[in-house]
Design a protein around this nucleic acid. Sequence first.
DNA 1: TCGAATTTGTGCGTATGTATC
DNA 2: GGATACATACGCACAAATTCG
Lengths: 257, 257
Amino acid sequence: MADRQQEPHYLRVAHALRSRITDGTWPVGHKLPNRPALVEEFDVGENTVRQAVELLTGEGLLEARRGRGGGTYVRAPQTQRPLPRTASLAGAPGRLGLTPQGMDADIEADSTAKVPAPPQIAARLGIEEGALCVRTEYDVLVKRRPVLTATSWEPYALTSGTPVVLPEGGPLAGRGVVARMAEIGITVTRVTEVPRPVQLTREQAQILGAVQSTQGLLIERTHYDSSGRAVETADILVPAERWNVTYDLPSAPAPRP
Amino acid sequence: MADRQQEPHYLRVAHALRSRITDGTWPVGHKLPNRPALVEEFDVGENTVRQAVELLTGEGLLEARRGRGGGTYVRAPQTQRPLPRTASLAGAPGRLGLTPQGMDADIEADSTAKVPAPPQIAARLGIEEGALCVRTEYDVLVKRRPVLTATSWEPYALTSGTPVVLPEGGPLAGRGVVARMAEIGITVTRVTEVPRPVQLTREQAQILGAVQSTQGLLIERTHYDSSGRAVETADILVPAERWNVTYDLPSAPAPRP
DNA sequence: TCGAATTTGTGCGTATGTATC
DNA sequence: GGATACATACGCACAAATTCG
């Protein structure tokens, strides 16, 4: 039976557990009592405990391991590597403007295709829905394993008939958007990035090696030329577990009255 | 019984439902069949359907309303307002360097206290754990309702004995970090921001008016002076449902070989 | 005004799958 | 294989919210 009172049982339990973690009663690495024990302690059903623990697992506070000697543990804060997104890097050569730090990263172009723009992409590029685009899929590899993926879109109308129509073909293959656009007389002056939290699907999480958490960051990046026209846009999918996406901005000088 | 096969039932159901939404079979506003109907269609248990629907609700794809005439509906894409994070804005006056667009926003300082630095904050500021800090809590209000919250930390050692020791007191109250630090001879030259996906707790979601989805972005922002020393750091909590956090970066000129 | 009907939300018990030691 | 503990799954009961007559 549900409670006649305010707070649902599973939230009450989740609250209690969260307190013990944040106030240090249960330090990092501490093993929680198993389900039957929690059921007894809080005097609720087994599924209620499960729901509470699931909630905290989703928040990244707990981590469950199966098997004998397994259990639910207070999770260590993630050790993530920085993924810098600075003004100088954003437009730099090197394909994606992505330069993971502290490791030998390799970027691999998966596939390139000429496809009609889906609605969202068309909106970001400021072109007609269904207009042709060159779509390129990238994987960023570390030790031959993908750690982030990206999909880039360029309006076909911009590069059609030029040597740079294919990002991964021609004389400037792999030289990056800015250099390629410069080759055909287009000056890229601005980049915007919109990072959004996303829930990774199981396949995505597995591909990207994110075992514990399925949270990720989807960065919508768009390059603009000097007239404000969008010349390229990309979806960059970053597993949160492995990266610190770091924006480095210069600060304006302090105004003095 | 669980499946002896690859994908769990609830994920299979979630997948199927997600497809119908994204491919337009079920447009925005469409009412899903109720639980018993879905149970019948997918030939699974009631809780399995619930789990699948809950998953998609958490992703913000579905929205459930209780009661007669209620049901589960395909949710309209969020109308998000841009929250620009540009180089010029990041260090600008105006307390947080936050300037939500398209609305009359008001920033309210909740409370200021002198407290010992918790481990994570100490690490970000590069000071001893437990060293004293001035902590200030902010709410950004729109129409008197909070839409994002922030907690700012400054080393007490920096501002102790100066007129700007309290961010919200003294001659430069509310003028922002850069201006206040300039007043005591500290030049802020860099800002870094690390946006991380977080799962909002229920209370947070409710406070921030994010009813449907509980995904958010926690931005760790740190101001540095010209010597590279951290002079302030803040946690800015943004409900993803309501904001597009937008970084606007200048692009480096294309290098020509 | 008020109860009936509908639909989601919460809760329990139990059985079995699966990973790990 | 055995033991352990979480993961998935089912069925059921009832609570709470909301609309409709």
